[in-house]
Design a protein around this nucleic acid. Structure first.
Lengths: 237, 237
DNA sequence: TGTACATCAGTGAACGCGCGTTCACTGATGTAC
DNA sequence: TGTACATCAGTGAACGCGCGTTCACTGATGTAC
C-alpha cells in the first residue's frame, strides 16, 4: 500500500525523467554534447527551464545520465545479440552478431555514439558510475575470444620481431582475463582482442565521422568484411 | 620593388593571421571545436573581437583554416617521417616511422586531433578545400603498402568465408590505387590497408579519448605493438 | 622628392540572442493523526 | 473518513554572462602623379 501510493507520484516522476532524457538524446543528434542546451531540452518537453532542475541538479548530471544510458543500451544490445546465438560453439556467429549490434546501435544513435565514443566533452569529467556500463559490450567481445581459446582455437601467433614485456604493456587487461578465464589466455590473444575491439569502433567512428567517404562505397558491407577478417585473426573460424 | 612594398603590410598581415590561428589552436585544446569562441581568441591575441573579421570573414572560416592547417601539418609530418628513412626497401621502418608520426602529432596536438578525427562539429560542413590536405597522410600509408606489393611481399590472404564483391564494396579506394600503382594491388591488399589505417587512428582515438584507461597501462608501447602486428598482417616484414 | 588620395587594420559601441542557475511563489498530491 | 500539515512539481521573473556579427570611426600605411 505504502509502495503503491509512493509510486503514484513516483511513477509520473520516472516518466517525465525519461521524457527529458529522450528529448536530450534527440538534441544530441543535432548539437554535440558540449553544446547541449538545458533550456532547449526543457522547451522540447514543454516545461520551463527551471523545472528541469527538479529532475537533474545540473547540466553535467544530465550528461552523466545520458552517458550511462547510452553505455547501458549499447552494452545490453551486444549482450542480447550474443545470447541470441543458440549454438554457443559457433564463435564466428556470436562474434558477428555482437559486432553488428555495435554498428547497428551506433548508426541508429549517432548522437549517443558521439557522446560515448567521440571526442570528450571539454570541462566535463565522467564520474565513476559510468565505468561499469562502459565495459559491458567490451566484456562480451572478450568472452567470445576467451571461449574460443578454451576451445583450443588459436589466434595469430606473436610476430617474429615482438619484444618481451607485452604482458606489462597491457597491464589491467591481462589482470582482467586472468582473474576470469581458465586456462589463462596468453598476452598475444589479449593483444589481438584489444586490436580487434579498437578496429570495430575505429571502423564505426570512421564511418560516422565521414572518413570513409571517398574510400569505401558500401559502409555496411565494408563493416562485414572487417568483422570477418578480425574473426579470422582471432582464430574464431 | 612593388613586391617588397606590398609585402611590408602584407607580411604583418600574414604574421597576425598566423598568430590568430595559433591562439585558436591553443583554445581548441581546452574547448572543443563547437565551442571555439572568436571573442576568446581575439582576447588572447590582444585585439578587439571585431578586428578578427579583417582576417577571417566568420567563425566557420576560422574553423576551416584550422582544419586545413591541421590536416596539412599531420600530412607533412607523415610524409617527412617516411622520407627520412633512407633505405627505401625497409618497408617496416617506413611503416613504423609513418605511424609514429601520426601518434606523435596527435598526442602533441590533441585539440587539432579532435577537430580532424573526433566527432564532427554540429552545423559545420567542411568545404571541398579540406579534402586534399585530409588525404596526404593516408596516401603515404597506401604508398608504403603498394611499394611492398610491387616488391612481391604479400599481405594476409583473403579469409575462407570471404564473399565476392569486395572490389565493389571498396569502390573509390580501388580506383585510387588502380590509377596509381602498377601492378595493381588486389582488393584484399587494399582492404587490409584500410583496416590498418583505421586501426592506427582507432588506437590513437581510443588513447586520447580515454577508452584505453583500465585496459592498457603503457599507451606508447601499446601503439608500437599494434603497429608491428599491422605491418605483419600487411606483409611488410 | 613631395603631395593628395586610397587602402587597410584596428577601435569601441551596439544589436539581439541564448545560456545555466537561483529564488520566491502557487497549487496539487501525499501523509499522519 | 476527514482534516491539518508536509512534500513536491512546475512557474515566471531575474541574475550575470558570453557569444557572433555589424557599423561608423580614426589613424596609419601604401600608391600615383
Amino acid at each position: 500500500m505504502e509502495q503503491t501510493s509512493r509510486t503514484a507520484r513516483h511513477r509520473t516522476r520516472e516518466e517525465i525523467t525519461e521524457e527529458i532524457l529522450r528529448a536530450a538524446r534527440k538534441r544530441l543528434t543535432e548539437a554535440g554534447p558540449g553544446e547541449l542546451s538545458l533550456r532547449a531540452v526543457a522547451r522540447d518537453v514543454g516545461m520551463v527551464s527551471s523545472a528541469v532542475y527538479r529532475y537533474f541538479p545540473s547540466r553535467d548530471d544530465l550528461l552523466t545520465s545520458l552517458l550511462i544510458l547510452a553505455y547501458d543500451e549499447i552494452g545490453a544490445a551486444v549482450e542480447d545479440a550474443d545470447h541470441a546465438v543458440s549454438d554457443r560453439a559457433d564463435l564466428l556467429a556470436r562474434w558477428t552478431a555482437a559486432c553488428h549490434a555495435i554498428r547497428d546501435w551506433a548508426v541508429t544513435h549517432p548522437g549517443d555514439y558521439a557522446l560515448t565514443y567521440g571526442s570528450p566533452v571539454a570541462g566535463y569529467i565522467a564520474p565513476r558510475d559510468t565505468v561499469g556500463p562502459a565495459t559491458r559490450g567490451t566484456v562480451v567481445l572478450v568472452t567470445i575470444v576467451t571461449d574460443a581459446y578454451r576451445d583450443g582455437r588459436r589466434a595469430r601467433p606473436a610476430p617474429p620481431g615482438a619484444r618481451a614485456g607485452l604482458e606489462k604493456t597491457l597491464g589491467d587487461a591481462m589482470r582482467f582475463v586472468q582473474a576470469r578465464d581458465l586456462p589463462h589466455p596468453p598476452p598475444e590473444v589479449v593483444a589481438r582482442t584489444i586490436m580487434a575491439w579498437t578496429s570495430i569502433f575505429g571502423t564505426v567512428s570512421f564511418e560516422l565521422f565521414g572518413h570513409l567517404e571517398g574510400s569505401v562505397s558500401d559502409k555496411a558491407d565494408w563493416f562485414d568484411e572487417v568483422v570477418l577478417r578480425l574473426a579470422v585473426d582471432l582464430g574464431l573460424t
